[in-house]
């Protein structure tokens, strides 16, 4: 069988599907909505930064962290296709991420940026 110049080094699209790598990806319209949602969240993040009363409140940091986490999850799930991809890829990403976040939290406790109230 005659092969194209790169067929030896690059598997075809059908091969990717058979390897569980390419599933139905979002469409252009879905990508457009994802981009819009990311933009809106970014605008809200910057907007709350300029509201002094909100910055002083206890909600400021949790609100920003939540919005950032949502943006992070949306990009990973839809743009990086982790929602549609093989579970091994999910494990390879979330495993180190969880270890890293837990290390960050422990370090913040260790250096006194976070504290647990005893009473």
């Amino acid at each position: 069988m005659a092969h194209e110049p790169h067929s030896h080094s690059e598997p075809s699209h059908a091969d990717h599907a058979s390897m569980g790598e390419v599933h139905e990806h979002p469409t252009w319209k879905q990508y457009k909505w994802v981009a819009l949602i990311l933009t809106v969240i970014t605008v809200i993040e910057v907007w709350v930064y300029y509201i002094p009363s909100f910055v002083e409140s206890r909600l400021f940091v949790p609100a920003l962290l939540s919005m950032s986490a949502v943006k992070f999850a949306i990009v990973v799930a839809y743009y990086m296709h982790l929602k549609y991809d093989h579970k091994l890829f999910r494990a390879l990403f979330t495993g180190p991420l969880i270890i890293a976040i837990l290390t960050l939290i422990v370090l913040l406790f260790l250096f006194g940026h976070l504290a647990i109230s005893a009473g």
Partner: peptide
């Protein structure tokens, strides 16, 4: 059953997270 290159890039991204 997965392409090694894609497994490698995800492992690399995991290490980059750290």
């Amino acid at each position: 059953g997965l392409d090694h290159r894609k497994v490698a890039i995800w492992a690399f991204i995991g290490s980059e997270c750290m």
